[in-house]
Amino acid sequence: MDIINQVEQLFIQNKIDIFLGYKELDGHLIPHGFTPDNLDELKELKVSENRYSLEKIATHLSEKDPDLKIGIIARDCNQRALNLLYTWKQLKPENIEIVNVNCCPSPLKPHPDCSYLEPKQSGEFKKEHGIDYNAEPDSLMETFNNNERFSRWMYEFNKCIKCYGCRNICPVCFCTECSLEHASLIEPGTLPAEVPIFHLVRATHMAGRCIDCGLCEEACPSHIPLRLLYREVNDIVSDVFDYKPGEGMEKSPFTIIGDDVVLEPKPMDFQIQGEK
C-alpha cells in the first residue's frame, strides 16, 4: 500500500522516530505508534474509519521527549488541529511529518466529517425524537425566538453527566490547569452539572480554538449537540476577527500567552516519583 511505502521512506531517511497510525487488533482498528525498530510491523499500518485524536497522542509523546520526531496520518481535521497546536506552541512543526489521507465517513457518522463538506448538525437525540433542525441548519438560531432557543439549549445542557469527555477527547484542549476543574467555578463531584456555566465556560474557551473535528459530540454520552454550539461561537469569531481556527498558521486573536510556553508534566507523574 502507498502509505506504508511513504512511512517506510520517512523511517529510512531518518525523518521520524515514531509514526502514529492505526492497526487492527482483535477486530478493532486502534491507534498505534510504529517505530523503526520493528519495520515488519509497518505492514499492519491501516487507515481507520474511526477517528482518534492522533495529534493529542503526539502532544503526550512530546511532553515526554520534546525533540521526538513524529509522523502522523492526517485527515483534514487532524491537519487543522496540528496547525492550531503549532500556533499555540504545543507541538513544533519541524518535528511533525504528515501523511495525508482522505476524509471519510465512519460507522459512527455515516457522512464525511469534514466541516467543509458537512453543514451544521444538531444532536442525535433531537433527530431521534423528531425535533430536527437539520433540514435547515440555521433554523435553530434564526427561526426560533430567544426564549425557545434558550429553553432548548438549557434542556440539552441539563442532560450532561459531567463526564468531561468533551474536554478529554478534544485535540486542542491542552491547558495544564482547566477552568472546568476549578472548584469555585464548578463544584467537584456534584450532579447535575452547573447549567449552563459548565457548558458556556467550555464554549467560550472554544472560541478561536475549536477546529470543528466533532470528536466531542461523538464522545458525548448525552448526545448534546456540542459541535453546533462551538460552531455558533466560532461564527462570531469569524465575523468579528475574520479568524478560522486551524485554517492556517495564523495566531488566534485570543492569544494571550507569550512565546515561552513550558509543557509541564501532568500531576500524576509527581505521584509516581513520590512512590517508595
Binding site: N50, L108, I161, C163, Y164, G165, E218, A219, P221
Partner: peptide, 9 residues
C-alpha cells in the same frame, strides 16, 4: 460506542 463516564475516563 466511543463514549465513557467520568470514572472510565
Amino acid at each position: 460506542q466511543g463514549k465513557l463516564c467520568i470514572k472510565g475516563w
